[in-house]
């Protein structure tokens, strides 16, 4: 079965793209020959049933996993064998499926830790902690953007699940990434938070590229410009939501069931 190649829109160049991405775990081919292109100013959804390999694709793209085969380029640069922290410094920043915050730091400090490196305050071991006070203004601005100002001085561990996800998005935005990879950013959130965060993702995508794994199809339909459907590690369909959702294969494999 050959995967449909992703369509390209005119002269637009992909910020992040992968060709023939594969990853084998022992005898199990978790990701098989995946092509994907993520464009500036767009939200690209990666959907598919559980175990389809969405998170593995994320791990491969962010280099937390080394692909068995294939090539990844970020803004024209080959990052196939680059380390994950270097990829992050180049502007490809991810969030995690299981909420990744620093639990015993305050909400403010979570954001300030993210701000330290881009602001050149990451290696000074001789300066007092108060050197970080200069980052507080920026951190507060970010917390205001995502609506976390009220929880600013609470420990991240004490936040509810949904608020932790919001905090994670705030820390990710602190790096001002070129490409934002969000692994199920809306999972476990109440409807109120979903509306707010979907709006937030939409507004941040205006100036960068976003790739997100998401199960909530109404949100995908709402905010995503492009959809790639994965099944058993392979691309089943790709295109805009209307096209993909009409695809008979997709309907039987995934959406038909979900939309009942």
């Amino acid at each position: 079965m050959n995967a449909p190649s992703p369509q390209s829109l005119g002269e637009q160049r992909a910020v992040l793209s992968a060709r023939g991405l594969s990853r084998r775990f022992g005898g199990f081919l978790a990701v098989n020959n995946v092509d994907i292109d993520v464009f500036h100013g767009e939200i690209h959804a990666l959907i598919g049933p559980n175990g389809a390999g969405k998170t593995t694709v994320f791990n491969l793209l962010t280099k937390f996993l080394q692909p068995t085969a294939g090539k990844i380029t970020l803004m024209g640069e080959d990052i196939t064998s680059t380390s994950p922290d270097r990829v992050a410094r180049m502007g490809l920043v991810r969030s995690f499926q299981i909420s990744a915050v620093f639990p015993h730091l305050t909400v403010l400090d979570n954001v300030r830790v993210a701000l330290q490196r881009p602001n050149g305050l990451a290696h000074q071991f001789w300066r007092p902690m108060s050197a970080l006070d200069t980052l507080t203004g920026k951190a507060d601005a970010l917390l205001t953007t995502v609506g976390l100002m009220r929880e600013r001085d609470a420990l991240a561990a004490d936040l509810s699940y949904g608020r932790k996800r919001v905090l994670e998005i705030a820390t990710t935005l602190a790096l001002d990434p070129k490409v934002l990879l969000l692994d199920e950013p809306l999972a476990g959130m109440g409807q109120e938070d979903i509306t707010a965060i979907a709006g937030l993702i939409r507004s941040v995508a205006k100036t960068r590229a976003v790739l997100m794994v998401e199960h909530n199809l109404s949100v995908v339909a709402d905010i995503c410009d492009r959809v790639t459907v994965l099944q058993r590690g392979e691309i089943l369909a790709a295109g805009d939501y209307a096209t993909v959702s009409q695809d008979p294969q997709v309907r039987t494999a995934y959406m038909g069931r979900e939309e009942d």
Binding site: F64, P84, H104, A122, Q124, F125, M129
Partner: peptide
């Protein structure tokens, strides 16, 4: 001073969640 410095803050965050620290570019 080392522990209570910007560097120490990053160390603390690494101890808290190493994967997240990597994904922030450290």
């Amino acid at each position: 001073r080392f522990v209570h410095s910007p560097f120490g803050m990053i160390l603390k965050s690494i101890r808290e969640n190493e994967q997240r620290a990597i994904s922030l570019g450290y």
